[in-house]
Simulated scan of single mutants.
Amino acid sequence: MHAPHTLVLLPGLDGSEAFLRPLVDALPAWIRSRIVTYPGDGAQDYDTLLRHALAQIADLDTYWLLGSSFGGPLALRLASADALRVRGLVLSTSFVRMPQPQLAKWAPLASAGVIGALRTVRRLPVWFGRRPTDPFRIAKAETWRRVSSRELAARIRSVMHEDAGAHLRTLGVPLLCLAATADTVVPPHNVDDIVALRPDLRVAELPGSHMALFHQAELAARHIAAFLRAD
C-alpha cells in the first residue's frame, strides 16, 4: 500500500477539467487529484493565473504538479513560487516558450472573432466524425459551452509572450515529460528545449496527437504513478 500523494492538475487552453477526467479516473487510488480550473472572467495572463492557482491550493501541505499543454508554463511558475511544497512536476505535451514561434507574426489576429471562427471549423470533424456518445465529442461539447472564444484568445496571447525557461532551469524537484508521438500543436523540438534545460528529466512517450493525455489516459496514468512511486 502506497502512502497517499496529492496531484494538482493544471489544464490546457480550455482551463476546465473536461479533458483531464479520463486521466483522473485512471490514476490509482493512492494518488489524490485536484484540478485547478481557470477563471472565466478577468485577465488570463500567467501571472494572474498563478495567483489564482496558489489560492486554490493554499490548504495543501505538499503536492505534485501536472501541467497540460498551456498549463505547463503555469506549472513551472507555480513550482518556482511554491518550491517548499512541490515534490515533483509532470509536463504533458507542453512547452517552455511559444511552441510554434513561426506563428508569432499572427499575434494581432488572436482575437475572439478569429478564434471563434477557427473553433467552428475545428468543431465540424468532431461533430460529424464521432458518435454523440463518443467521450471526446462529449468533452469537446462541454468546453464549447463553458469556455468562450474571448478566454481562449486571451490565453493564446499569453503563450505568445511566455518564456518559462528560467523557472525550469532552476527547478530543484524531479521532472517527468510526457510527449505525444504525433503532436502537431506542440512539435518535438519543444521536448528538446525542455531536455536542454533539464538533462536529468525523464521523458515518456504517449502514442497519438496533442490530445494523447485524454486518449491514452491509462498509459499516462501508469507513467505518472511510476514517477511518483520512485520518490
Score class of each variant (00 low, 15 high):
197 L>F: 09
151 E>V: 15
146 R>S: 09
179 A>W: 11
132 P>H: 11
164 A>C: 08
129 G>T: 02
158 S>F: 04
138 I>G: 08
156 I>N: 13
169 R>V: 06
138 I>H: 12
182 A>D: 12
171 L>A: 00
172 G>V: 04
180 A>C: 01
200 D>H: 15
167 H>I: 02
135 P>Y: 11
195 V>L: 11
162 E>W: 04
148 S>D: 03
132 P>A: 01
202 R>S: 14
192 D>Y: 12
152 L>W: 06
148 S>E: 02
197 L>W: 08
172 G>D: 12
137 R>C: 01
180 A>Y: 04
197 L>E: 09
182 A>C: 01
178 L>M: 03
147 V>M: 03
189 H>R: 15
184 T>K: 13
163 D>T: 04
188 P>K: 03
142 E>D: 12
142 E>G: 03
178 L>R: 04
136 F>L: 12
135 P>F: 09
192 D>I: 05
195 V>E: 01
167 H>N: 10
167 H>E: 13
184 T>G: 04
190 N>K: 11
192 D>M: 04
150 R>T: 03
139 A>K: 06
164 A>T: 08
189 H>W: 15
174 P>F: 05
202 R>W: 15
131 R>E: 14
186 V>G: 04
194 I>S: 00
149 S>G: 14
160 M>F: 13
149 S>I: 00
179 A>I: 01
175 L>M: 03
181 T>N: 02
148 S>Q: 00
143 T>Q: 10
202 R>N: 05
150 R>F: 11
156 I>E: 14
157 R>W: 04
195 V>Y: 06
151 E>L: 13
133 T>R: 14
202 R>L: 10
156 I>F: 14
168 L>W: 05
175 L>A: 03
176 L>I: 02
180 A>T: 00
197 L>C: 05
171 L>C: 01
188 P>Q: 06
203 V>C: 01
132 P>V: 04
129 G>L: 09
175 L>F: 03
165 G>C: 00
139 A>D: 09
166 A>V: 04
154 A>Y: 06
184 T>R: 15
142 E>W: 15
141 A>H: 13
188 P>A: 03
171 L>D: 02
137 R>E: 01
133 T>A: 14
190 N>A: 13
165 G>Y: 08
174 P>H: 08
132 P>E: 07
196 A>K: 14
131 R>M: 11
165 G>S: 07
183 D>T: 02
182 A>E: 09
